[in-house]
Design a protein around this nucleic acid. Structure first.
Lengths: 341, 341
DNA sequence: AGGCTGCTGATAGACGCCTATCAGGAATTG
DNA sequence: CAATTCCTGATAGGCGTCTATCAGCAGCCT
């Protein structure tokens, strides 16, 4: 039982291969009756075009563009590295991947960047700000036939064809539960530092965290969020303030980047390992802090997986082929010092 | 800058495409001097054969076999389902995947099964018992040119070309740290139930768990391991015994399958949510117990990912192509009730 | 010199699909 | 009923590689 070819279908339907091709690829008008015969034959033989042969024949280049923030925190650098690495690997498969950096915090700038790339690429992956202007730009791309996937941070309500990233509110809830359990029913204050509250992912994490905290751990008092803008130094300053203001703070959750700033602040105050510190993204720095105990838990996402997933999705969209949802789910990685890769 | 074809290489090296092909695929003897010229041209043009075209031309079927335990705990069923699902998907890519069930606990039976499949397949993935006889059978397959990957449980020291599965000792350590933290410095006993101590994965988990327990949590007394054979009923019996024998047991780590038996025992004794219960593998049953709080943490591995990884590895081996290590790392998934997929 | 062997070139024919073109038959229009 | 438009068939050529075959040329041996 070998797989059927386009010729088998043609024969079974009593038409020519040209007609089968016309039906399959919508190349020209075909009488409905004929088309129906072809489609029936396709189903009967369970014909599915050989994607390899198709891509070979099309001799088509896929052109994709990744748009990442230019402000370079460690995770975004890892993401950019992953893009470059995959670009190399995929070069052998007629896939061209470009990488652009933009100020993603400025809606206008990001929207302009999105408009600009539309003419050239088949698909765009973007770490996006959730803002009406950006949403418009994404919708415009989609209207032009350029498929868009959001990466790491989503823009719900836009016509992006897929979101590649973790469920951030689940990540926040997870952080809260671990915080609560690690604190063992003690009473005290828990601090919260975010990067920017205009990034969807941060908002959602915070939301999930607060939800579980309020519901399950009434013994803990959640301090108002402070914004650190994902900048190491600013974050450190914020953390120092927080520590000074609240000598009875026993837990700290960092929603965004700049963890090293917090680690420094904790060490400066001599309160490392006394404050349960949970943060995001495994990088060289956070790994080190995790090993020496300053960080208790890192919640992370795998940049390599995300980039590969984004590419697979964009390719599927370009081929108008379905994606395997289950395969494209990006998981929440939880790292303790014991399971660091 | 389009990518180079085999013809470009031929031209650059001043030879015919036939010769380039002979060098690249070791098809026939080529004078060393000529071969060197070709190889230089390959490097200079950064030529890499188009894998799509190659596979198309070879018109080759890959035949792989998965050998799984016939004793059907939920995880193994999920694994088998994943194999069947991927078999369907890959059918479109000239990859034929068969699935066999065997008593993997009997070294002789498993070894016989391995011997048997050797003649037919290009590659074999096996959930293997770590036993000299099995090791021999694996080595024999390798000698015959059939590549073998171990799945879920490794056979170190054998000539398997790859192990697809999590780092089990890290998983054990992770369980221990979470257990220790969840128990908040209280003193008490911690129970340990394993499936079979002849499966490598269970031994390693236990080892990792004991290591961290002994080192970091001297307040906790680790009870001697009890074997439950991965059988729901036997496991339940063992758990009931354990609970009866030790009213002061405050933590329980299940290294193997049969978690539902333990959940039943805990509920029977009215000690659910009083004993911190950590176990492995997310299934419908364990998910439910996690949600209602009987299970505190599930450490898991994604069957779908493992199967896909095994297939990718086997295909690479069949093509003599390198694998992307980083992409084939199977991660330890940690699930709380907050991040269940 | 004749017969080897060893290496190389040329080339045809897959693999399964896409693209394009041309011709002729069928259906539609006035 | 003729003129037109709409569908369909046939077929060639290509995508980049593999496989196989045959012919030719050099150098070696006896």
């Amino acid at each position: 039982m070998v797989r059927a070819t386009i010729e088998d279908v043609a024969e079974a339907a009593g038409v020519s291969v040209a007609t089968v091709d016309r039906v399959l690829n919508g190349r020209a008008a075909v009488r409905p009756k004929t088309a129906a015969r072809v489609e029936q034959a396709v189903r009967r033989l369970n014909y599915q075009p050989d994607r390899l042969a198709a891509r070979l024949a099309r001799a088509r280049e896929y052109r994709f563009c990744f748009i990442l923030p230019e402000g370079a925190n460690a995770f975004m650098i890892a993401l950019a590295d992953a893009v470059r690495e995959e670009a190399l690997r995929m070069a052998g498969e007629k896939v061209v991947i470009d990488l652009r950096h933009t100020d993603v915090f400025e809606a206008a700038v990001l929207a302009a960047a999105l408009d600009e790339v539309g003419a050239v690429y088949d698909g765009v992956a973007v770490v996006a700000l959730d803002h009406p202007q950006v949403r418009e730009a994404i919708n415009a791309l989609d209207a032009r036939g350029v498929s868009v996937v959001t990466l790491v941070s989503d823009v719900p309500g836009s016509r992006r064809s897929h979101y590649v990233g973790i469920d951030n509110s689940a990540a926040g809830r997870t952080a809260a539960t671990l915080m609560g359990r690690y604190l063992c029913g003690r009473a005290g204050k828990v601090g919260l530092i975010a990067g920017s509250l205009s990034l969807r992912d941060h908002i959602e994490r915070q939301f999930g965290f607060e939800q579980v905290m309020a519901h399950d751990y009434p013994n803990l008092t959640l301090l108002p969020v402070r914004e650190g803008r994902d900048d190491r130094h600013k974050v450190q300053h914020v953390a120092e303030q927080l520590l000074a203001d609240h000598p009875d703070m026993i837990g700290l959750y960092n929603v965004g980047a700049g963890s090293t700033g917090i680690a420094a602040a904790l060490e400066g105050a001599g309160r490392q390992r006394k404050v349960v510190f949970i943060t995001h993204e495994l990088t060289d720095d956070t790994r080190r802090a995790l090993i020496d105990g300053t960080i208790d838990i890192i919640i992370s996402q795998d940049a390599g997986h995300e980039v590969r997933s984004a590419i697979r999705v964009l390719m599927s969209k370009a081929d108008r082929a379905p994606i395997v949802e289950q395969m494209e789910r990006i998981r929440i990685d939880i790292y303790l010092r014991d399971n660091i890769p």
